[in-house]
């Protein structure tokens, strides 16, 4: 789970190519990370159109600041998540979105092999429960479970101490459990 501190050779090569002006390499990178960036943005913003716009801005920022990325400080995914998180926080500061997620149409899910483990109905209920969590608790949960970041990487993304990350993550799980039990999600 989580990306190591060092980049693998392919990614390092891709980054070098992008820095030297290879746009095709950047397009490959966008394809690789677009679901992750968009998902996190959507979890924070709760609007398909605005999340797409923000994701575009994130990739533009990544393209412009790729020279500043230091593999010794953080993994590439962590770096991208940090940019996404900061971009979304800035956006939310400017404009608070108060429309709840349930009133909107959910965007398309990326197809994964694990999807067969739970049904569409369960996905919907779980999504609603996650999106009902307060933002401070929702983000560590999303980063840990949906994006596979470690505690340390979440600290780097959110720029908060480990104790806070752990506390919020555990609290979010307990809150989620309560919501799901209340909705009859778990049949024990």
């Amino acid at each position: 789970m989580g990306e190591g501190m060092l980049l693998d050779e392919t990614m390092e090569e891709t980054i070098k190519k992008i820095i030297s002006g290879d746009e095709e390499a950047f397009s490959v990178l966008v394809d690789m990370y677009k679901n992750r960036v968009f998902s996190l943005a959507y979890r924070m913003i709760s609007s398909q159109e605005e999340s797409e716009d923000l994701s575009q801005e994130v990739f533009l920022k990544v393209y412009n600041n790729l020279r500043l990325y230091d593999p010794k400080k953080a993994g590439f995914s962590t770096w991208i998540y940090r940019i996404t998180y900061n971009q979304c926080v800035d956006y939310l500061r400017r404009k608070r979105n108060t429309i709840p997620l349930e009133e909107k149409i959910l965007p398309v899910f990326a197809e994964t092999p694990e999807e067969k483990v739970i049904t569409r109905e369960e996905i919907k209920n779980l999504n609603n429960a996650v999106n009902d969590l307060p933002e401070d608790y929702r983000i560590p949960l999303v980063l840990y479970h949906f994006h596979g970041l470690t505690y340390k990487e979440i600290c780097q993304v959110m720029d908060v101490p480990m104790s806070i990350v752990k506390n919020r993550l555990f609290r979010a799980r307990k809150m989620l459990k309560e919501t799901l039990i209340g909705g009859g999600f778990y049949v024990m």
């Binding site: 950047f26 397009s27 966008v30 992750r36 575009q56 899910f109």
Partner: peptide
């Protein structure tokens, strides 16, 4: 298990093209 199985959202099909045009 449930949370891990929850798939990521995906943006529109022409997202990459839009990003490259923007750049």
């Amino acid at each position: 298990t449930m949370l891990r199985a929850l798939p990521l959202f995906t943006p529109g099909k022409d997202f990459t093209i839009k990003v490259m045009k923007d750049i």
